[in-house]
């Protein structure tokens, strides 16, 4: 079968992040990394290929600046066969709908049986991309999959909902987002990391996809950030590395906060 995985490069969660006060956009300078939740989607695809459908081809699809190629390689190292990377300055500043439009256009170029996503992006905590992309592609959609079983012309998914567990069957082609409960992603071995660069990479501009630049990017955004404010609540995180005395330091912290006597 043909599987596409939508991935995103996100700022390293441990790096300091800020929002540019001129543009109100997240400053993505500094270290970036593959969205950790996407690794579960890649692992799910690899397990389909290792198990019921050995002739599976796995395509990694992303929208992002050229520098996101590093995260594409990281995804390929985990088990992708080829990549489609939409890199276009006019895509910068896309909101959720804009990003979904570009992804949908990139996915429409090929016939995929299954389009996988992670449950959310780690940076903006967006958990609706699957629903947006599925509707634009006019495909059935299942989110938060805890398991995927591939059948003939359908996939069966178990998912946790508010009242318990649902088992649903979706006709393929379809869009599925996977929860972080679905698997424990493997770390790729060094040769796979080295080999990722040599896999077929396609880098495309919006024009290659027939996407109107006015419908995406900052210009086409349906949402407008008009300002920023500081929320009430928690202060900064005190972050320490364990040097063998972490337990003592936790106690000191809790005593200082008067949580323990």
């Amino acid at each position: 079968m043909r599987i596409a995985i939508c991935v995103k490069e996100v700022p390293d969660p441990s790096a300091e992040k800020r929002i540019d006060e001129g543009t109100n956009r997240l400053v993505r300078a500094g270290e970036n990394t593959l969205n950790p939740y996407d690794r579960h989607a890649i692992e799910a695809a690899v397990r389909i290929k290792e198990g019921p459908a050995p002739d599976t081809e796995i395509t990694v699809v992303t929208v992002g600046p050229e520098s996101a190629a590093r995260s594409v390689d990281r995804a390929l190292a985990q088990g992708g066969d080829r990549s489609v990377h939409v890199a276009d300055e006019a895509a910068a500043g896309s909101d959720l709908l804009g990003t979904a439009r570009i992804l949908a256009a990139a996915l429409r170029r090929d016939q995929y049986d299954l389009i996988l996503l992670g449950q959310q992006a780690a940076d903006a905590e967006c958990y609706v991309m699957a629903g947006l992309v599925a509707e634009l592609l006019e495909l059935p959609c299942v989110t938060q999959a805890a398991s995927i079983e591939v059948g003939d012309g359908s996939v069966t998914v178990k998912r946790q909902v508010e009242t318990g567990y649902d088992t649903v069957r979706a006709q393929t082609p379809c869009v599925v987002s996977v929860s972080d409960a679905i698997n424990d992603p493997r770390y790729p071995p060094l040769p796979a990391i080295m080999g990722a660069k040599k896999k077929p990479h396609e880098v495309l501009a919006l024009a290659d996809l027939g996407v109107d630049p006015a419908s995406v990017g900052a210009a086409g955004a349906g949402t407008r950030v008009g300002g920023l404010s500081k929320p009430e609540g928690r202060g900064d995180t005190v972050l320490i590395e364990d040097d063998g005395t972490a337990a003592e330091k936790i106690i000191e912290f809790l005593v200082e906060k008067k949580v323990v006597a």
Binding site: D95, L132, E135, C141
Partner: peptide, 16 residues
């Protein structure tokens, strides 16, 4: 998921 689908159908901006 329903609001995501509706936003895509209507071409409406969505805030989550």
């Amino acid at each position: 998921d329903a609001m995501a689908g509706l936003a895509a159908r209507l071409g409406a901006g969505i805030v989550i």
